[in-house]
């Protein structure tokens, strides 16, 4: 009797366990499909022949005719796609470097060198993040012209840190607060100056935060659209986000396969890199948002 009861309980627990496993897997697959579905469809489209693609009755998810790479080749040989990628890459890296160079000391100053104005200043910098590009682009275009950077990729290097610095300072402050104060104090007792302690103990310890900022800043920069659209019109100076649409949408004619190929080719590497640093990024947000 007792044994049977135990057995029944055990079976019940096992069934519940199996059910919850099935639910988790089901939801995970659903989430993955929902998020990546458009990319999956883009990937199929990229290799379709025109005669296959533009027929309403064809199953859009299958290759009804043999796949072709001609549209991917078109992307690389007949458009400036490689130039767009290169522009996005160097702008992104430069902006990220500038962001860290300005943002890390600023975050340290606000998080550690307790001044009476630290608190209000930190809030002010956060509010800067709320000033949207859509409000600034009209007057920034004047600044860009004044700086002689009109229609040049360099104009983006000039303005993108306005987007990345406030968020990065905010994130880095969280990371810095998570480092015990004793470590720097010990370094200073050992004879380092404040600056020396910062460079030798704080910078290495805050490395995960630096990684989070690099990934976040690069993603923001690569996605930016309005400034790139408003400031840069020659096609060889454009980054991906505006270059690809202008090169492959001519009036009403969309080069669909090449467009989709470009989307997948850009999306996958960025997501892969982001995924590598996801855990660190998550850690950063905890410190930044909750304890900050």
């Amino acid at each position: 009797m007792r044994a049977a009861e135990v057995e029944q309980l055990r079976r019940h627990a096992r069934r519940r366990h199996v059910a919850s496993r099935v639910t988790v897997y089901g939801l995970a697959v659903l989430a993955a499909l929902g998020a990546a579905g458009p990319f999956l469809w883009a990937g199929i489209t990229a290799f379709k022949q025109n005669r296959d693609l533009y027929r309403r009755t064809n199953n859009p998810f299958l290759f009804n005719l043999t796949p072709t790479t001609e549209h991917v080749e078109y992307l690389f040989t007949k458009t400036e796609f490689p130039t767009f990628v290169w522009n996005t890459l160097w702008v992104g890296l430069l902006v990220t470097a500038i962001t860290l160079g300005l943002g890390l000391p600023a975050a340290y100053s606000l998080a550690r060198l307790d001044r009476p104005w630290s608190g209000p200043m930190a809030i002010a910098i956060f509010f800067v993040y709320l000033v949207p590009p859509t409000l600034l682009f009209l007057s920034l275009s004047r600044v860009v012209v004044a700086a002689g950077l009109q229609d040049r990729t360099w104009s983006l290097v000039l303005v993108y840190p306005t987007i990345t610095i406030p968020v990065s300072v905010w994130l880095l402050m969280g990371f810095l607060r998570a480092i015990p104060k004793d470590i720097e104090e010990q370094a200073m007792v050992d004879g380092y100056s404040r600056l020396g302690a910062f460079v030798r103990t704080v910078v290495p310890l805050v490395f995960p935060g630096v990684v989070a900022v690099v990934v976040f800043a690069f993603t923001l920069t690569a996605s930016e659209f309005i400034y790139a659209l408003a400031f840069v019109s020659p096609s060889t100076e454009k980054p991906i986000s505006t270059g690809v649409p202008t090169a492959l949408v001519r009036g009403d004619v969309f080069f669909w396969q090449s467009l989709q190929a470009a989307t997948v080719l850009v999306a996958v590497p960025i997501a892969l890199v982001f995924n590598l640093f996801l855990e660190r990024f998550i850690a950063g947000f905890t410190h930044g948002a909750v304890k900050g």
Binding site: A28, V29, A36, S241, F254, A271
Partner: peptide, 30 residues
Amino acid sequence: ADFHGKWLVRFLVLLPWTTPVALSTIAWLW
């Protein structure tokens, strides 16, 4: 949650956010 292939699912789920907006919106346009 813990499950096999978590890495792949995370990667796929991140795609919409990490892709430049203009490009992912073009995928939707199509």
